[in-house]
């Protein structure tokens, strides 16, 4: 993987783990909007309800896990598509580094949003 010298199997293995993570986290995420601690989906979307859930550490871990899993899985798939568009080591390196940068930005932005909501600052 670019200059990081990771085998593709390492990335693929992480991808499989992220898929498993999404399969667990996504139903739980939907459940918190449907029947876990709420009377209705509309009620779960009110500001107080959302902020209230963000103050619960289990929800924060769930959202962070979902963000990480979905970002990795999506960007890994995008990388594979882009690598098929053109060829050459230079293209591979540019795509991989671009995807890593996009991942860092997405996770940084998403996690900072969660942290802001949790701390209320």
């Amino acid at each position: 993987m670019g200059g990081l010298n990771l085998g593709e199997s390492t990335l693929q293995l992480v991808n499989y783990l992220m898929i498993a993570l999404i399969l667990v986290a996504l139903p739980l995420h939907f459940a918190t909007h449907a029947f876990l601690g709420v009377t209705s989906q509309e009620e779960s979307l009110t500001y107080d309800s959302v902020i209230g859930r963000y103050r619960a550490s289990a929800t924060v871990i769930l959202l962070a896990a979902l963000l990480t899993g979905a970002s990795y899985h999506g960007l890994y798939g995008l990388r594979k598509i882009l690598l098929e568009v053109s060829s050459g080591h230079r293209w591979d390196r540019v795509v991989t580094m671009g995807i890593v940068a996009a991942g860092i930005l997405m996770l940084g932005w998403g996690l900072s949003t969660i942290i802001v909501a949790v701390t209320g600052t």
């Binding site: 085998g7 593709e8 199997s9 693929q12 990388r79 594979k80 690598l83 098929e84």
Partner: peptide, 9 residues
């Protein structure tokens, strides 16, 4: 083989 242009392609 263990590359995106190998078996993972």
């Amino acid at each position: 083989l263990d590359t995106v242009h190998g078996c993972w392609g």
